[in-house]
Amino acid sequence: MNRAVNLLAPWLLIAVLLAVWEAACRLRDIPVYFLPPPSAIADSLVTDLPSLAAAAWYTLSKALVALVIASVVAQILALAVVVSGVLERTVQPIAVVLQVTPVIAIAPIVNIWAGVDHPERALIGLASIVAFFPVYSGAVTGLRSADPDLVRLFDLYDAGRLQKLLRLRLPSAVPFLLEGHKVAAGLAIVGAVVAEFVSGSGKVQGLAWRILDAGNRLQTAKMFAALVVLGAMGVALYALLQAAERAGLRWWRGR
């Protein structure tokens, strides 16, 4: 009973909010271009689904490519930083500055570098930058997270640096890497969407551009429909990575 309530409560709230929204639009004659009722958004979602799905795939595929790039670069750099203390002090200030600078502020510059003919490069570049940090800091923390008594044990048996790295530090880092990638995936989508907004050209066929384009034509229902797809995409990706993290942890500790 309690379980059912817990499960249903959020859906019930959504249903009530949608009903109030629909009723308000109809009763007060709110213009569709200002606030379309949920029914109009659902309509748009059905009719525009093919183009929205294609746009979603465009954004998602760029974000995924960025995630792979960020993951590889971040892990290599984290490894180098953990092995060499000097390198960490060298890299740290730049890393911090890059991390605290809002991605939207870097976007126009990256757009110029990518060139008007290749806006997808700007997408991938920006998404890579934002996806980099969770993986990087997860990897650095993880590589340093080894149980101090296990480190002593390795010392006791005269383990070399490479043995310690391969047999102790890397395996200890696995849970932190899984968590880092989960966060990074969500941020990669944010980065891709921001880049699309800034580039704002017809060459980019992603979801953010659909929102901009529909906005210019005052097709507000379509804007909402694109938002719904964007949200669904984010939730799906998060759920997928959450499942991957659980499976990875099960494999890591054998249960």
Binding site: D147, D149, L150, R152, L153, F154, L156, Y157, D158, A159, Q163, R167, L168, P171, V174, W252, R253, G254
Partner: peptide
């Protein structure tokens, strides 16, 4: 040395944990 906590590597089986000093 045996520490206060078992100090086993969670990613290794009991066998691999015990074999570790030898493999090192």
């Amino acid at each position: 040395v045996v520490f206060q906590a078992p100090t086993l590597a969670p990613w290794l089986s009991a066998r691999a944990n015990v074999a570790l000093p030898l493999e090192l």
